[in-house]
Design a protein around this nucleic acid. Sequence first.
DNA 1: ACGGGACTTCGCAAATTTGCTAAGCTATAA
DNA 2: TTATAGCTTAGCAAATTTGCGAAGTCCCGT
Lengths: 110, 110
Amino acid sequence: MKKKTTSDALKIMDQRYFDGKPERQAELEQAFAEDAVARKIYTLRTKAGLTQKQLAKMVGTTDSVISRLEDADYEGHSMAMLTRIAAALDKRVEIRFVPIRHTPQPVHEH
Amino acid sequence: MKKKTTSDALKIMDQRYFDGKPERQAELEQAFAEDAVARKIYTLRTKAGLTQKQLAKMVGTTDSVISRLEDADYEGHSMAMLTRIAAALDKRVEIRFVPIRHTPQPVHEH
DNA sequence: ACGGGACTTCGCAAATTTGCTAAGCTATAA
DNA sequence: TTATAGCTTAGCAAATTTGCGAAGTCCCGT
């Protein structure tokens, strides 16, 4: 899974970005999103009690691909692939655009 | 926006797929997801009072690309692009894998 | 020490998405 | 009618992602 970037990104965000460079928001939000997705796939798979190879077979790809998807640094997530994974695990993908900054709206994280 | 596929897909789902062909679940869920995404982008943009061209500029692309993203039949959504759009509108992308079938869990559709 | 399983990483070719320009289409305003 | 705004569609090159095999690591069980 190669987790580590998250905490780093957090520091960077607080220290360098938020005060004066909102343009770079994008790349950061991107990094977060990617990481979140990677982690969700990982969680989904392990909770289902599957190995990467097993899930790969269900999805119709190989284990190295699953590994790549679970890498927090991977930036190539597509709806197509996410949906394939979801379908294999009897789920569906739901995406939402949630406001950052000006709205403390509660996060629905289960 | 070219809406129309949704109701069709609904019919198809009920009549042909659900009874006997769970393998094709994937492509259907896919279709739904794509449509949902397209619609969300459209809603986001119009609620922000922007034209495709305006949003395109903010995102760093052209209006034809935005149009394509808002097409319910488009299947090429990527996290990268969704995140760029979100960032331009001061939002972030959140994805979730939600159970289908065995869990009547309420849908959080705003 | 020797497998074997689980996972990661590498390297490409093949497939897919993006960027852009040009050309349509429809509706509205002058 | 002519012009313009807003949106869609087509077509292609460029960039990116996917598929997949091979190789490498790490860890456990024998």
